[in-house]
């Protein structure tokens, strides 16, 4: 790996470890390999959002051309958010693409992602199904996002109604995550989700 990238990541890693956000448990950063090309990030779901109480893991890959090009970041924890793919975890955020600047750091990237969880941009979606729900039925979106936070990110809000509907589909032989996706996509309408799964 190019000298500048590895040296910078080393310094940034120390910077994050010492930051006040780490002290407040809002963000976390770990090394995955010894040559500073892959890291694991973690952000806490922001308070007063559907993601509150959840912890979201991020895969961070540092290109050889860093910091002249942005790091490649993806959610490893499944999440229901208009700008994050519910399938792949791919993120739509300008600073990870054409709005990157060399003065940004892993710390500012993690904080920007946390801000994205508080302020979605449904008009620039990465996941069209989620974005449509967000715009057409915000309460349904919040309920779904809270449920996904509970199931995949360790959030505290159990929704017995969602769990019950998923159990009904599991009993019909559908795999759990597939059942959750179908129900989430059809506003938790069991009939329509079943129809889609068996069509």
């Amino acid at each position: 790996m190019a000298n500048i990238a590895a040296q910078r990541i080393k310094r940034e890693f120390k910077e994050v470890i010492k930051s006040e956000e780490v002290a407040k448990c809002a963000i976390k950063l770990e090394l995955v390999d010894d040559n500073y090309t892959e890291l694991r990030g973690e952000i806490a779901g922001p308070p007063d959002t559907a993601y509150e109480g959840g912890n979201f893991l991020l895969e961070i890959k540092v290109p050889e051309t860093y910091p002249f090009n942005p790091p490649k970041v993806r959610f490893m924890t499944r999440i229901w958010h208009p700008n994050i793919s519910s399938v792949t975890g791919a993120i739509c955020l300008d600073i990870l693409k054409d709005q990157w600047a060399a003065a940004m750091t892993l710390r500012t990237v993690l904080l920007s992602l946390q801000a994205l969880l508080s302020a979605a941009e449904p008009d620039d979606p990465q996941d069209a199904v989620v974005a449509r729900q967000y715009k057409e039925n915000l309460e349904m979106f919040k309920l779904t996002a809270r449920h996904w936070t509970n199931v995949y990110a360790g959030g505290p809000n159990v929704n017995p109604e969602c769990d019950e509907k998923i159990k009904r589909l599991i009993d019909m032989g559908i795999e759990e995550h597939q059942a959750r996706v179908a129900l989430s996509s059809y506003n938790w309408d069991l009939e329509r989700a079943t129809e889609q799964l068996f069509s």
Binding site: N3, I4, Q7, R8, R11, E12, P67, A102, A103, T105
Partner: peptide, 14 residues
Amino acid sequence: CGICRMPFDGCCPD
């Protein structure tokens, strides 16, 4: 330096 994050009193990584 905001780009390489090395001290200004040092030099760039190259």
